[in-house]
Design a protein around this nucleic acid. Structure first.
Lengths: 129, 129
DNA sequence: CTTTGTGCAAATTCTTTGCACCAAA
DNA sequence: TTTGGTGCAAAGAATTTGCACAAAG
């Protein structure tokens, strides 16, 4: 499926900027920040603004098309892969790695509704260790 | 154990401000933000500054005495309980609840060293549902 | 005395908002 | 021709930094 088709299927109008940003996230599984997305796409799309990147990632994550990663305190990262998997932040190089993990079924109190689940590990990656 | 004793055992000098802040976190398991800690303690400690709260939570979490919670994108929260447990953020009222959960053992690649683990759920609590 | 902690104000960084213009249905 | 998208500049909020003073060993 193309990025435009996926957006359409979620009732998101596939504007040029949205497809560009979503496409970038699908092809670059580096969990980029808004700034990294903006910097990467700027050369190809000189009129793109950081506001549009903010607008777009906010829209896409509210629709569940992408996932916001808050593993760091300073800035948010984004991931086009919404399947359940863990995120590992290396405190040495700052890279965020994916890892496979079985999401535990916790005994949440009666009346609570769980909508999102995240598993975050931090430590040192093989290059920084 | 008193808060001062715990701080001392981790080679942290138990200054008045540090004990006050750590004590507050131990007694209030509400996962407060820096601002909430500062506002709560200000009446009792009129000379306390927000900078000192920032300095202290940074120091204590770097030493592993408290845990930083980055479940929200806007601001960090802090928890004096460092035992493994999950955090649930209600998108309705903004409250962060603790819950029991067995932390899964993920197959992290060779050479990776895991130092911290966090499990974050979001959704609606029983009052907001 | 010498190191460490505190606190004010300013600076920095990330994110949001207001508003005008542009593009698409 | 009306709604929705984009982008600039300004505002806002959380956090950090520089520096001077205070306190503790």
């Amino acid at each position: 499926m193309t990025s435009a088709e996926i957006l359409l299927s979620q009732n998101i109008r596939p504007s040029l900027a949205r497809v560009l940003i979503y496409d970038y996230l699908r092809k670059h599984r580096t969990h980029p920040t808004v700034d990294e997305i903006f910097t990467a796409l700027s050369p190809r799309a000189p009129t793109l603004s950081k506001t549009t990147v903010y607008n777009t990632v906010k829209l896409l994550s509210s629709k569940g098309v992408i996932k916001m990663i808050t593993i760091e305190d300073q800035q948010s990262r984004f991931d086009a892969c919404t399947d359940n998997h863990g995120h590992f932040l290396c405190s040495g190089c700052g890279k965020v790695y994916d890892f496979d993990v079985e999401f535990p079924s916790a005994k949440i109190p009666e009346g609570f509704e769980v909508l999102t689940k995240d598993i975050y590990f931090t430590g040192k990656c093989n290059k920084c260790n």
